[in-house]
Simulated assay, not measured.
Amino acid sequence: MTMPQLGFLGLGTMGAAMARHLLDSGHSIRVWNRTASAADAVVDAGAERAENAGEAIATGLFFSMLSNDDAAEATFTAESLTAAPAGSLHVCHSTLSLAATDRLVEVHRQAGVEYVAAPVLGRANLAASGTLNIVAAGSASAVERAKPYLDILGKRTWVVGAQPRNANLVKIGVNYNLIHALQALAESVTLIERGGVDGETFVEILTDAAFTGAAYTGYGALIARKAYSPPGFTVALGLKDLALTEQAAAAHGVTLPSAPVLRDVFESALADPALAGLDWSAIAEVTRGLVQPD
Rank of each mutant, 00 (worst) to 15 (best):
Leu121Lys: 07
Ala58Arg: 03
Met14His: 02
Asp264Cys: 10
Thr2Lys: 11
Ser80Leu: 12
Leu178Gly: 10
Ile205Asn: 04
Glu267Pro: 06
Arg49Ile: 00
Tyr176Leu: 15
Leu150Lys: 03
Gly7Tyr: 04
Val159Ser: 02
Ser88Cys: 07
Cys92Arg: 00
Pro164Trp: 13
Ala39Gln: 06
Asp264Arg: 14
Gly7Lys: 06
Ser268Val: 09
Lys147Gln: 11
Gly253Asp: 13
Ser129Thr: 11
Ala215Asn: 08
Ala186Gly: 08
Leu275Phe: 05
Asn33Ser: 06
Leu132Ala: 11
Leu121Ile: 15
Leu206Val: 13
Glu55Cys: 02
Asp241Ala: 08
Thr77Ile: 06
Gly112Cys: 02
Gly289Pro: 01
Pro293Arg: 09
Glu187Lys: 08
Ala209Phe: 03
Ala136Val: 09
Gly238Tyr: 04
Leu81Cys: 09
Leu242Cys: 09
Arg34Gln: 09
Glu73Phe: 03
Asp272Gln: 11
Leu237Val: 06
Tyr216Ser: 11
Glu79Thr: 13
Glu267Gln: 11
Val189Leu: 06
Asn177Phe: 12
Thr190Tyr: 00
Pro273Thr: 05
Ala100Glu: 08
Gly12Glu: 07
Val116Ala: 01
Ala137Phe: 10
Asn133Asp: 12
Ala128Ile: 08
Ala209Ser: 15
Gln5Met: 13
Pro260Thr: 13
Val265Gln: 02
Leu222Ile: 09
Leu237Ala: 12
Ala250Gly: 14
Val197Asp: 03
Ala71Tyr: 02
Leu98Gln: 07
Glu246Cys: 03
Val261Glu: 04
Val235Leu: 05
Trp32Lys: 01
Val160Arg: 03
Leu206Arg: 01
Phe76Cys: 08
Thr255Pro: 00
Asp198Lys: 02
Ser258Lys: 02
Cys92Gln: 10
Val286Ser: 00
Leu104Phe: 10
Ala248Asp: 00
Ile205Glu: 08
Val159Ile: 12
Gly15Cys: 08
Ala100Ile: 13
Asn177Ser: 13
Gly7Gln: 05
Gly130Ile: 05
Arg288Ile: 04
Lys147Arg: 12
Arg165His: 09
Ala136Lys: 03
Arg194Pro: 07
Arg49Ala: 01
Gly213Tyr: 00
Leu66Val: 14
Asn52Cys: 07
Ala17Ile: 07
Cys92Pro: 00
Ala117Lys: 05
Arg225Cys: 06
Gly112Met: 11
Asn125Thr: 14
Ala224Cys: 04
Tyr219Asp: 07
Glu106Trp: 11
Glu55Met: 05
Ser229Asn: 10
Arg34Tyr: 07
Gly161Ala: 10
Ala45Ser: 12
Phe211Thr: 10
Leu6His: 03
Asp294Ser: 14
Arg103Gly: 03
Tyr219Met: 10
Ala249Val: 13
Gly238Met: 05
Arg288Met: 09
Leu182Met: 14
Gly112Gln: 08
Leu9Ala: 11
Arg194Ser: 11
Phe8Lys: 02
Gly154Glu: 03
Leu61Arg: 00
Leu22Ala: 05
Ala83Lys: 00
Thr190Arg: 06
Tyr176Val: 14
Leu104His: 06
Tyr149Pro: 02
Lys155Tyr: 08
Ala274Glu: 14
Asn125Arg: 11
Pro257Met: 03
Ser141Ala: 15
